[in-house]
């Protein structure tokens, strides 16, 4: 049953109205308040896996993309504590994979890189680099998959399943070994197509899914985040 019941709550003390069933993130977006995120993107079901959108709801940490709003809920978003959590989460993503921004064709369009800039991550951190050894699957004539850059956001998995109806991508392995794999021995053995929504530039937030031959065609200065900070508020938060 669809409900149109209006729910009133606060984000950082600002009173917001949303509809029952909406997530905190959706309601915030509607109100023009940006909550940082990586695994969530418009048009795909929220997954709550990256935790970059973690807020405090009545004092409890929760993923704002999956947590429904409640009447009178007090949400904290832009606090020093939460920014520090987010910085550590983003830092750990850099340390878990092999993210070589200077030579990556996604640089300037990459949401992970842009989020790091937004959060003021400009130098190496306390975590060790895991430097995993991961293969590059370039077997498909139009598409390559470089899982060195994967952050396991699952956007390609959801896009392929829910929009393309194909199940090209899926998770393999467990724990720290968990990776995005393809439904076949290699990419060329799947039914993936360059026309799939999962392969569109909007889906992969990093440089993991590569549209062959398109790298570096956009000059520096004209890339998505060359001139502006990621987030609808277009501004860097404080420390």
């Amino acid at each position: 049953m669809t409900t149109e019941t209006t729910i009133t709550f606060t984000i950082d003390g600002q009173t917001i109205e949303g509809r029952a069933g909406q997530s905190i993130m959706d309601a915030a977006d509607q109100a023009g308040i940006y909550i940082p995120r990586l695994c969530d993107v418009e048009g795909l079901h929220p997954q709550g896996s990256c935790r970059v959108c973690t807020v405090k709801a009545n004092g409890r940490s929760t993923a704002s993309c999956t947590q429904p709003i409640e009447e009178g809920l007090e949400v904290e978003n832009e606090t020093r504590e939460l920014r520090n959590y987010r910085r550590d989460l983003v830092r750990m993503l850099f340390h878990e994979g092999n993210h070589l921004c200077p030579i990556c064709e996604a640089s300037g369009n990459c949401e992970l890189q842009a989020m790091a800039y937004r959060l003021g991550i400009t130098q190496a951190s306390k975590f060790p680099y895991l430097q995993p050894v991961r293969p590059l699957d370039a077997s498909h004539p139009d598409i390559a998959l470089d899982t060195n850059r994967c952050i396991r956001c699952g956007r390609c998995i959801r896009a392929s399943k829910d929009i393309d109806g194909k199940h090209v991508f899926g998770y393999v392995g467990r724990g720290i070994e968990k990776q995005v794999g393809v439904n076949g021995s290699k990419l060329s053995k799947t039914n993936v197509s360059i026309e799939d929504y999962a392969i569109s530039p909007d889906v992969c937030p990093v440089g993991c899914i590569i549209r062959k031959g398109e790298g570096f065609k956009t000059p520096i200065g004209a890339r998505k985040y060359d001139q502006s900070i990621i987030g609808t508020d277009k501004k860097q938060p404080g420390n």
Binding site: I103, G213, G215, F216
Partner: peptide
């Protein structure tokens, strides 16, 4: 070796 051809001038 193993990298994609259009990456080479940048790498």
């Amino acid at each position: 070796q193993g990298r994609l051809l259009w990456e080479v001038p940048v790498i």
